[in-house]
Design a binder for these strands. Structure first.
Lengths: 199, 199
DNA sequence: CAATAAATTGAATGGTTGTTCAATAAATAG
DNA sequence: CTATTTATTGAACAACCATTCAATTTATTG
């Protein structure tokens, strides 16, 4: 037990270094050697823990999922009422909190890989689905407690994510921070509208 | 004139080979050597036309813009009435036509670069803006001829692209083709709704 | 303490990267 | 036909790449 801890710790450390390096250099041009340099260890040690670069990327995507799930946990833990949880969650999703969680460049690079590597597609789809299902489940709770009227939580959750994906893709094409914030705000309002909440 | 034609032709050829190779191998791992191999020429010849790899990527993004603009031209040329143009354009945008125009993997890879390289961001933003403005201009024509009611063409165009970006990001996270088509269809209906057209 | 297993190093491998440069082939112009 | 410009080749460069493997250090166990 104490043994595998060291191993798991190292793995986490490597994935974190991978992520940090990828932010600066780009996901695809982050080499094992560069990760090793960041950690001041030998490249061969990384290979010892991750047999291939693909394994590293898979681990990074998992790491990403964990981060996103924390936003959900936070909304759950800091509220008691399902409706309050929902409001807190949607507010987080359409705010800097969500956007700053994971580096955009790394995220879209990983997303781009989906089109060439089926195993990445599976992994990435799974994250997306898991997050949608989490939201769907919360929507169902809100519906059951008559806090909102939502007959098809699955579809509604899909539409929220739909809006979310579009929002973040779009705002990065806007030049000024001011424009970006304005659009993010509008999207948040639209999301609350979709849920029948004025806020 | 005849001279620079050869030069321009070669440049186009190289960009096309770059694109084709990027589809298979990924944008970031497409090297000058690989492009040269595809064209059966020397790597140094590519360097002769494009001083750096960044120049090549910039040219590829321009190539991408040209392709998207063709969809607009097609809608303009095959219709006389602004409203018909609009209906034809929206139909194209929310269909396979639009999605098949440029490889998703290459597109999102280029998009990811935006976050690390300011010059790419500028280039990419310009494409996005140019397309939005094209649509906005058409919306204005439709409003002026009283075909639709659209007081703020700019904002409406933004929302259409907003929906478009979200749609294509989202549907690639769905596993089956059937689900993807279903969502694309729904988005198209939503777009027409946003324009006050039932279709 | 001794034996075993895991973590880590360091060197070596063969291949690929972007870029430079002089030499050659082809096209253009006077 | 000659001079000049342009297109293209081919070789060389040092830097970096992922991966391998035996040697060594460190930790765990009996």
């Amino acid at each position: 037990m104490g043994l595998s801890n060291i191993s798991e710790l190292r793995k986490r450390e490597i994935v974190e270094a991978f992520y940090q390096t990828a932010i600066k250099e780009g996901l695809e041009s982050t080499s094992i050697a560069k990760i090793a340099k960041t950690l001041e260890i030998q490249p061969s040690l990384i290979v010892h823990y991750f047999k291939s670069k693909d394994e590293l990327i898979t681990a990074l995507i998992d790491h990403c999922l964990e981060l996103y799930l924390k936003i959900f946990e936070k909304a759950y833990l800091s509220n008691e009422d399902p409706l309050e949880m929902l409001i807190s969650l949607i507010s987080s999703m359409f705010s800097k909190d969500w956007n700053d969680l994971f580096d955009d460049g790394v995220y879209y690079s990983a997303y781009a890989m989906v089109f060439r590597e089926p195993s990445f597609r599976e992994k990435f789809s799974k994250i997306h689905k898991e997050l949608r299902e989490k939201l769907s489940s919360l929507l169902k709770d809100c519906h059951d407690t008559k806090a909102i009227n939502c007959n098809n939580p699955n579809e509604t959750a899909n539409r929220i994510f739909f809006l979310l994906d579009g929002t973040y893709f779009f705002i990065n094409m806007l030049s000024t921070q001011k424009e970006q914030n304005e659009h993010l705000k509008q999207s948040k309002l639209l999301a609350f509208e979709m849920l029948g909440l004025k806020k």
